[in-house]
Design a protein around this nucleic acid. Structure first.
Lengths: 198, 198
DNA sequence: GTCTATAGGAAGATAGAC
DNA sequence: GTCTATCTTCCTATAGAC
């Protein structure tokens, strides 16, 4: 919400990288200051204390995720392909995606124990679900089978599945390819077989 | 794997409770010793150091989860109801369930950053998926619609969905009732409509 | 095996100069 | 706004008696 100075932004970007590398649990103020190329004192000058720094970072991450999803969605011409592409975007062997997914997973995991993060998390999640629900609705136009659920339900299931698969991938329980395969089939099942998979 | 003394077991139970309350990151050796009703020195006597204590606790949690699922599955006469009941077992407003789910979520989240936990996690997850796959297979007998996916795929999707929904529930992003509703519909969609849902 | 007491160190936070 | 140097707190881990 509040405007970020260039310096503050670069600190939050560094914090995102450190969280993706060590987790919220593993973030050391000193390691963050090294990553950002500033002194620890400066972190305290800008953010007060570690807890607040974390709060701001998680806010930063979820804002960035909103922007990310929002752009990809509206720019696409074919809604049927767009849904699949948008969701599969979260399961990619790309450093940025991995960083964002890991940091997001940490946000969720931390929120379980820190109620002050829950509002932030819920708001961001709901926004994501709404974006996907809109895509689902548009997808119905080019589906071969009739809709079984409300778009909101479908969207919430698919996004929750993405989170579950993403966590399994990041924690080494399944391969990326298998996660993608499972997600693709789930999408096909939820919105019906589309032209290119028929 | 190694035999646990009564004392060790009660310490690991206490550790599970503390992790469910504070998270892995928030577990303080002193708080654990108070919870277990012993001195901190005794924890070190039995478990060496904090990291090993954590490792053993997470192993304990996943062993307990295996036993939990295994029992419920085999004892049920009606496979169609059993699948739904077994999966919904994870989404209940019961202190024990909440404790186990929270601790399990922490195990998963920690494994992202600690490779030495990943084997443990993968093994336990695969066991769970296999148990559910077996139930899915049996469920096919009383399903009204033809099977769309391999039982292994269905089981892996449903369990990943359970984890995703559980995390959203525990982090306050959705209500328990909504999570249960979404899961029920997903099960119906995956194994086909069964008799009792018409 | 279990406790009390405490050493020792890591990490968060601040003081004060520039 | 930013740094260097340092303080303080908290927490893991151990020593030694019983």
């Amino acid at each position: 919400m509040s405007e970020l100075s260039h310096r503050q932004k670069s600190i939050l970007e560094a914090a995102t990288r450190v969280i993706a590398r060590r987790g919220v649990r593993g973030l050391r103020v000193e390691e963050l200051s090294a990553e950002a190329g500033v002194s620890t004192a400066l972190l305290y000058y800008h953010f007060g204390d570690r807890a607040n720094l974390l709060r701001r970072t998680l806010e930063f991450i979820s804002d960035r995720a909103d922007r990310y999803t929002g752009e990809g969605v509206s720019a696409d011409a074919d809604p049927c392909a767009a849904l699949e592409r948008t969701l599969l975007l979260e399961l990619q062997d790309d450093p940025d995606v991995r960083e964002n997914s890991t940091a997001w997973g940490e946000l969720r995991a931390s929120a379980v124990f820190e109620p002050e993060l829950q509002d932030q998390l819920r708001t961001s999640t709901e926004q994501w679900v709404r974006d996907i629900a809109e895509l689902v609705e548009r997808t119905r136009a080019c589906s071969a089978t009739p809709a079984a659920s409300h778009p909101a339900d479908t969207a919430e299931r698919l996004t929750a599945l993405v989170e579950g698969l993403s966590e399994r991938w990041l924690s080494g329980s399944i391969t990326l390819e298998r996660a993608r395969h499972l997600l693709r089939d789930a999408i096909a099942a939820e919105v019906g077989e589309t032209l290119h998979t028929g």
